[in-house]
């Protein structure tokens, strides 16, 4: 199937968050692909390949929105195995979730994929809105927080992470699916072509040297917001951002007995 997978760059979660006045300062950020988007790329590649024969079953297109530098993250997606990429120009901090959804919708209307596959949230904004917004704007069905995806004759059967366990939802294609952590477990994606006995390595795949070389030749098409004809007026405004009150370091205990005594008598948690 033809899959459009979205890739957002985010400040490296391993880096300390810096502030400038009442806003987050990302000027020194080390940018990485949002982890859940990396999971979405992995899921897209698993859906679109026969892991036993290496046969390709469809096209995987990576989409990002942001300044030109984002081509680095798109290049990584291409090195993992995506076929081509689209970069819509824009300053990421100026676009709220709704604006992003409008842009994604415009690209979907151009590309007409069978599936829009996305991370369940971005680790910077953590809004967890864009997939659902896109589904509604496109008038498509949605399956959010996917832990498992099985392709079948009617579309996709998606096992969704919900509070009480798993909810199984069937969606016809085209559809929007957002992925959760467990989608990268070894047998989480079933496409009917890869043998049922095949177990992937846990986690998103690393780019091979061959993949990295091939990615250099793959296309990253740049489109401007004006070309797409999207007016992205904000619907929310970030008024301020500040660091939370820090957690104070506690005490070191000398041994296990002292630890248990403190937990029982001081913290009262045992």
């Amino acid at each position: 199937m033809k899959i459009l997978v979205t890739v957002k760059r985010v400040p490296d979660p391993e880096q300390k968050v810096k502030f400038k006045g009442t806003s987050v300062d990302v000027s020194a950020a080390n940018w990485v692909i949002n982890a859940f988007d990396e999971y979405a790329i992995e899921a897209a590649l698993r859906l679109n390949e026969n892991a036993a024969t290496g046969e390709k079953l469809g096209e995987t297109i990576a989409l990002s929105i942001g300044p030109k530098d984002v081509s680095q993250q798109l290049r990584s997606a291409l090195a993992m195995g995506a076929d081509r990429a689209i970069l819509v120009g824009g300053a990421d901090e100026e676009l709220d979730s709704f604006a992003v959804a409008r842009i994604v919708k415009a690209v979907v209307e151009r590309e007409k994929p069978d599936l829009l596959l996305m991370g369940k949230l971005a680790t910077d904004g953590e809004a967890s809105q864009v997939p659902q917004l896109c589904a509604a704007l496109l008038d498509w069905p949605q399956a959010t927080f996917a832990a498992q995806i099985t392709a079948n004759a009617e579309g996709l059967e998606v096992k969704r992470e919900v509070d009480t366990g798993i909810e199984v939802k069937q969606v016809k294609l085209p559809a929007v699916v957002s992925v959760d952590l467990r989608i990268i477990s070894p047998t989480a994606v079933v496409n009917g072509k890869t043998p049922a006995t095949h177990a992937y390595q846990e986690g998103p795949r690393y780019a091979s040297l061959k993949g990295i070389m091939a990615a250099k030749k793959k296309e990253i098409k740049e489109i401007s917001l004006a070309d797409l004809g999207v007016k992205a007026a904000p619907v929310t405004k970030l008024v301020s951002a500040e660091p939370p009150a820090g957690r104070k370091a506690g005490v070191k205990v000398k041994d296990v007995a002292e630890l248990v005594s403190k937990l029982k008598n001081e913290a009262k948690v045992l």
Binding site: D96, S97, F98, A101, E126, A127, S128, Q129, V130, P131, Q132, L133, C134, A135, A136, L137, Q142, T144, F145, R160, E161, V162, D163, E167, P234, V235, T236
Partner: peptide, 23 residues
């Protein structure tokens, strides 16, 4: 913001062209 709220509210927000604040 349970799985229910997180799934359904943004879809309603899009239909209303409403801004949404999560969490």
């Amino acid at each position: 913001a349970t799985a229910f709220g997180k799934d359904i509210l943004p879809r309603a927000a899009a239909l209303l062209e409403a801004g949404m604040v999560s969490d």
